[in-house]
Design a protein around this nucleic acid. Structure first.
Lengths: 211, 211
DNA sequence: GGCTTTCGCTACGAGTCGTAGCGTAATGCC
DNA sequence: GGCATTACGCTACGACTCGTAGCGAAAGCC
């Protein structure tokens, strides 16, 4: 999006160290102050840069926090644990661990709330945060279909809709549990969740999913 | 919580009309301005009351918006549609319709974000908004167990955990679909969601749930 | 009428916002 | 080395919002 695709234009280049310091300072301020009391002036002071430098790179608080929080989700991976249930449990626990961080808690939902009235911000969140999570769903699903644990979906449209549905169910449940209910996503909860997701509510809840 | 449980103490009583006007003005301001640009001064002007009156009744923006948004969820009901699947679909569509309102969209998530750092606010959200939704889960579940559609759960502890799980899955998926993915919760999506919730991902997605 | 509480209004200091202006620093090109 | 160009740090600024204090008037109960 930025017009610096060519190797580097003339003039003094932007300091990459400043970028990293600003984003780290933003997360630190999120922990100390939370979203509402976070000010760009304070972030600039913490990062050791001038306030004007912040405004030269980010349009405002929303965009800055999106970038700061997005980095937290870089750690998400999908290790092969042998079964779909184990894969889901592993990824959900990872996701929940990130969401439980105070810098993610206070920043992410606030930005999502702002994004309901700002299409550009919503797109930024989608590209920086959501798509990175959704990719795990696509990979895990393909892996499970290759294992024969999930029925194949030849129609690409239906496959995309199902992937979106799974993504909203998984991410939504974890986010709701963490931020709205305020309860921990521990192993017991994850087992129950995976059970329902794979077998449904109508199954006996004590029957193991791997059968 | 307020110390006005006795019929009415001495002195001039608070105007109930002012309360209603303020909450309505808050929702109106949420639609026009969104959470971040909403100011209590503006709400007071819209409601035709003095700014000081607002501060006498609510501690701040957070508490005011919680009360304003909570009223939107009064309309939630659980009509008996004959089967668990139909009950779920009906309630989810109701919930989604409320969440799609701009005053709910912009306000609810912002308040939840703030509640991650404010235990009193979290409790207020729980009592005003969340419990009202969770009650529907409890009723619907009991009804389905009476019908024989869900296995009974004799252990009260396990029953409570399962109810919490269902609630986080239902509400979380709808909220995530609406606010994060930014996609509509239409009948097609609700059918797919109910299918997965009741039968699980491993079931053939085209097989009807009612068998 | 007297007591108590609420209401509308005005005014205020404190804090934040986002920007403008200026001199300096760092790079690419010649 | 010199020049153009861009980024940086710093200061200052008007505009806005916040939450509160103080006042006189209004609306109830005894």
């Amino acid at each position: 999006m930025h017009s610096r695709s060519p190797a580097s234009r003339t003039g003094r280049p932007r300091s990459a160290a400043a970028d990293a310091a600003i984003l780290a300072a933003t997360r630190e301020a999120l922990v100390d102050l939370g979203w509402s009391k976070l000010t760009l002036g304070d972030v600039a002071t913490r990062a050791g840069v001038a306030k004007t430098t912040l405004y030269r790179r980010w349009a405002g608080k929303n965009e800055l926090v999106v970038d700061a929080v997005a980095e937290l989700f870089d750690a998400l991976e999908l290790p092969d644990r042998g079964s779909l249930a184990a894969d889901i449990e592993g990824v959900v626990l990872q996701f929940a661990a990130i969401l439980a961080l105070p810098e993610a808690k206070s920043g992410l939902m606030a930005v999502v709330a702002e994004a309901t009235r700002d299409d550009a911000l919503r797109e930024r969140v989608r590209a920086s945060v959501v798509d990175r999570q959704k990719r795990l769903v696509l990979e895990g699903r393909a892996r499970a279909q290759a294992r024969g644990e999930l029925p194949p979906e030849p129609d690409p449209g239906a496959a995309a809709r199902t992937a979106d549905l799974i993504f909203d169910m998984v991410a939504g449940a974890v986010v709701h549990r963490t931020l709205v209910s305020g309860q921990p996503v521990d192993e017991e909860w994850v087992r129950g969740f995976t059970q329902v997701l794979l077998r449904g509510l109508t199954a006996q809840s004590t029957r193991p999913v791997a059968g």
